[in-house]
């Protein structure tokens, strides 16, 4: 095997590596943003079967369906919002802006990463979002969540390090 073939082989690995990181981080951000629009639809009642036949008592089993709607949107989940609002280092107006921006930002950055549009810039912005989330979790002492976001940051840094091998992209500048 020649040294040229070795270089090509290494490049292919890096190219696939950045592609995988882009896909993972893109899906992770995009679907997280979409889920902020999820809520419960109208519950559906079905009759409970006993011995294979509808029970005679009228017992029902309620199945809640999941629906997506603009009206369901919560950028910061309500339990976290209630905690953040009481934090002196988080002004209410800033929290409200963050609440509005977070979901769309995750969706847009997820899409740009997935499609390869300004990959390095997208990765950097995504890293800033995860850093801001880390700040909030530090205040409310959610160490497990902080560690989980730390893993995301490591993956983003790895993707930035491999950015020069980013071949399957729509817009490579930035």
């Amino acid at each position: 095997m020649t040294s040229k073939e070795n270089i090509c082989s290494n490049d292919l690995g890096y190219t696939l590596g950045i592609l995988l990181l882009r896909l993972w981080l893109g899906v992770r951000a995009f679907q997280t943003g979409i889920e902020k629009f999820a809520g419960s639809g109208k519950p559906v009642d079905s009759t409970v079967l006993v011995d294979g036949a509808p029970n005679t008592y009228g017992l029902t089993e309620t199945t809640a369906t999941k629906v997506y709607a603009m009206s369901n949107y919560n950028g910061v989940p309500a339990p976290l919002y209630d905690k953040f609002i009481n934090e002196p280092l988080i002004p209410e107006f800033a929290l409200n802006i963050y609440n509005v921006v977070l979901g769309p930002a995750l969706i847009i950055l997820g899409l740009t990463l997935f499609l390869g549009i300004a990959t390095r810039f997208s990765l950097f912005l995504m890293g800033l979002i995860y850093t801001s989330l880390t700040f909030g979790l530090i205040l409310i002492k959610q160490d497990a969540g902080i560690a989980w976001l730390g893993v995301h940051i490591i993956m983003i840094v790895m993707a930035l390090a491999l950015a020069k091998y980013n071949k399957f992209a729509i817009f490579k500048k930035w």
Partner: peptide
Amino acid sequence: ALPGGMSKQPHTP
């Protein structure tokens, strides 16, 4: 658990 519940207000039946 019971196999199902009641999809009405408690006093309705």
